[in-house]
Structure formats: structure tokens, C-alpha cells
């Protein structure tokens, strides 16, 4: 899966999680950029991403992602790209 494809899918997950169709994420998107991205929503988001890609984040990965770009990097690594 290419980086662009991952971004496309992850954008959908963001829209579903935050119930906001106007969201468009980029590498630099962080929690403060999206209304309602608190710690509970963050965990919900991670679990939704896991389900979408059929992967499982380790606690080390989950606790160190600083922005969406880093999340995509981890997903790509897990998918073997």
C-alpha cells in the first residue's frame, strides 16, 4: 500500500471518529488541530485505525506518535512497506 493510499484511508477513519466530514489530515496534523481530539478520542482513533488496517499498535508505538505523519509511518512499517 502506498503512502497516499494509507493517507486516504486514514482520512476516512478521522472523519468517522470525529464525526466531521470536513477533516483533511496531513503529515503535520496534531491533536490541537482537530476539535474534540482529547485522550479518549485519541484511544478511539487508534483502535479504529487498527481495525481499518488490520494491525495492532504496541504501547511504545501508541505513546510516541507525535503527529499523523508518524502514525502513517508506523502503519506502513506494520504493513511491510
Amino acid at each position: 500500500m502506498s503512502r497516499e493510499e494509507v493517507f486516504g484511508k486514514i482520512n476516512e477513519v478521522f472523519r468517522d471518529t470525529f464525526d466531521d466530514e470536513s477533516i483533511t489530515v496531513s503529515d503535520a496534523t496534531v491533536a490541537s488541530d482537530i476539535d474534540g481530539w482529547n485522550s479518549l478520542a485519541h484511544v478511539g482513533l487508534l483502535v479504529n485505525v487498527e481495525e481499518c488496517f488490520g494491525i495492532r499498535f504496541s504501547m511504545g508505538e501508541a505513546s510516541t506518535m507525535k503527529n499523523v505523519g508518524e502514525m502513517v509511518d508506523v502503519i506502513l512499517k506494520k504493513l511491510g512497506n
Binding site: 485522550s39 479518549l40 484511544v43 478511539g44 483502535v47 487498527e50 504501547m59 501508541a62 505513546s63
Partner: peptide
């Protein structure tokens, strides 16, 4: 507390 207690607990539950 968020990183080492809340996140592991909540992730376990949400899965």
C-alpha cells in the same frame, strides 16, 4: 498518568 495508565487501560477496553 495519561501515557502509562489511562492509555493502556483504555486501549485494552476499546479493543
Amino acid at each position: 498518568l495519561t501515557t502509562y495508565l489511562y492509555m493502556p487501560l483504555t486501549m485494552k477496553g476499546m479493543r
